[in-house]
Each structure stands twice: as structure tokens, then as C-alpha cells.
Amino acid sequence: METLIILLVGVLTAVAIYLVLSKSLIRVILGTAIFSHAVHLLILSMGGLKKGTVPLLGEEAESYVDALPQALILTAIVISFAVTAFILVLAFRAYQELGTDDLEEMRGVNDE
């Protein structure tokens, strides 16, 4: 299972990098969103998958899955939401002001 998930992470990362490298700001944002998906899965699989029951002590099981990656990911999900929202709005405002989402056209003036 872990190998499969790691392969999935690889595919997601490659797709994310390709999107991030493209010229359109919208694709860049999609890329970052996919990137965070990939990272969440990566962290989770690093803790080992299906090694026990849900990390709730009420279950009174023999062993529990690793709770630490879960806590990390929970934080990461919320943060990545905030970041996605911010850059989405940034793109939106940039488009309003500049009339383009093409990064080539958004380059700064060269004299600085």
C-alpha cells in the first residue's frame, strides 16, 4: 500500500511541478493546490499505513496508527487552504488591475 501511495505522490508532484512551471497564473494556483495534496499523502504514508486502529483511545485496541502525522497534516490542510485562498485572491486582483493572467506579461520593469 505504501509503495502505491508513494507512486501516487510522485505522479501528483510531477503534475504539480509541471503546472507551477506554466505561464498561466491559474494553472500555477492549481499546481500549488495539487502540491499540498501530494505532501499530505506523503506525510501520512511516512508514518506507516493501516498499522492499527483509529487513534481514538476509546477503541481500546491493541495498537493505534501513528497519530503524529495526522496532527501534522491537519495543521497543513488548514494552512494550505489559507495559502490557496490568498494566492487565488491575489491572482484575481492582479487580473482586475492588469487585465491578464499571463506571467510573461506580469514581469516587472527591467530597470530595477
Binding site: 483509529v54 481514538l56 483511545l57 476509546g58 491537519l74 488548514v78
Partner: peptide, 12 residues
Amino acid sequence: HNEPGGGFIGGL
């Protein structure tokens, strides 16, 4: 505190 849930999820 004891079951799935908490501040983040509840808030969301």
C-alpha cells in the same frame, strides 16, 4: 476531545 472533531473541524 475524545471522538473525532475539535476546534478546526467544528469551526470549518
